[in-house]
Amino acid sequence: MRQPKLLPPTVQRWVEQRTGPVVAVRDASHDWHRSRVWELEVTGGARRYVKVSPPVKFFTRETRAYRQVVPALGPSRAPQLLDSRADDLALLVTAAPGAPAPGLRLTSTEWRAVHSQAGMLCARLHEAGELGPDDRAEAEGSLEAAADGAEKYLARAGGRLTGGEQQLVRDYAAQLRRVGPVPLGYIHGDNQPRNWLWSAWLALVDFERTRPAARVQDLVILTVTEWLDHPDRQEAFLQGYGRALTDAERHALRCLTALDAVNCLAWGPDNDHPEVTARGRRTLDRLMKEDQP
């Protein structure tokens, strides 16, 4: 059992300048060492969350997302940014309604409803305004950038992949460069149930990876986890999303799952995260089997 992470005193003083005295603090970080999030109870019983981002890049992305992209989700569909402090890479946000979907004992019907609303919210996020020139350039290069990362992850994974598996990843990286035009927009970047809060409706949280990109990149984790065992949830998501994927998106998605697999096999063991490691191994085993002549 990990030790609770302590809210830095400088961050607490900054928060209290905006909220009044903090009555209680609960460590709400994800289960990895760089995640630092706290749930706060302030005077009057209101709940707030404060997050200290691991790198500057994530702080910058998340601050911008809350100001420019997240409002497109609608009221009560995400936290609201109250303030940010660049010196500490800290963000102070309101509490969104609901609880993380994985911790709830949902029925199959309820899970389909969750995925349907997730599809609807992703569509809103993906269409959150026109891309400016710089954002469009970043989005247009996002699949190429993903393909460029293959060799880095292969090097980090080392002997965790066989020679045949390494070649499969390289082949899919090469294919990803040739898929052609796909729809672009702002993606969540970590779109999965742990970042979905469910009550009477769905809310999204955690926007540190929100960026302009190929929209299909938001479906990779769901494809290799939730949807693999529950295709009805994929159907519900796409109904909420409002359209089927294009042929180019389906091809890109398969390529991206291969790159996700090697990323998981590089990151998971190095960070003592067996769930991520298992995700990568399962995907790679499936692709190797399906691609056999």
Rank of each mutant, 00 (worst) to 15 (best):
T107A: 12
L131V: 03
R194Y: 04
A123N: 14
L125D: 13
P97C: 15
E140M: 01
D134K: 10
A96S: 11
A155V: 01
T107G: 15
V182E: 15
D134H: 09
H188N: 05
R156G: 09
Q167D: 15
R177I: 07
R105Q: 08
R112A: 14
D134A: 13
P193Y: 00
A96Y: 09
A101K: 04
L92M: 06
R105F: 00
M120R: 13
T162G: 15
V182L: 12
A123L: 10
A118V: 02
A157Q: 06
A118G: 11
L143Y: 07
E140V: 00
G159I: 00
W111E: 14
R194N: 13
P97Q: 15
H188A: 02
G180S: 13
H188C: 02
A99F: 02
E165Q: 15
L168R: 14
L176P: 10
D190S: 01
L131R: 04
A155P: 00
V114W: 05
A123K: 11
N195C: 09
Y186V: 04
T107P: 10
L92F: 02
A137F: 00
C122K: 04
P183Y: 09
C122M: 10
R124C: 07
A155T: 07
A157P: 05
H188P: 01
P100G: 05
A146V: 02
Q117A: 09
G158Y: 01
N191F: 07
L176S: 12
Q167T: 14
L184S: 08
Q175R: 15
E151M: 09
G159F: 01
E140W: 00
L161Q: 02
K152W: 03
A155I: 00
A137Q: 11
N195S: 12
L89A: 14
A137L: 08
Q175S: 15
R177A: 07
I187C: 07
L125F: 07
R160A: 11
L154T: 03
A137K: 12
P183Q: 10
L104K: 06
G189R: 01
Y153I: 00
A146E: 13
L161I: 00
R178G: 12
A99E: 15
M120D: 14
L91Q: 13
R156Q: 13
L184T: 04
E130W: 05
N191P: 00
A174H: 14
E110W: 05
T94P: 08
N195L: 09
V179Q: 15
A146L: 06
S108I: 01
L131K: 06
P181F: 08
D135I: 02
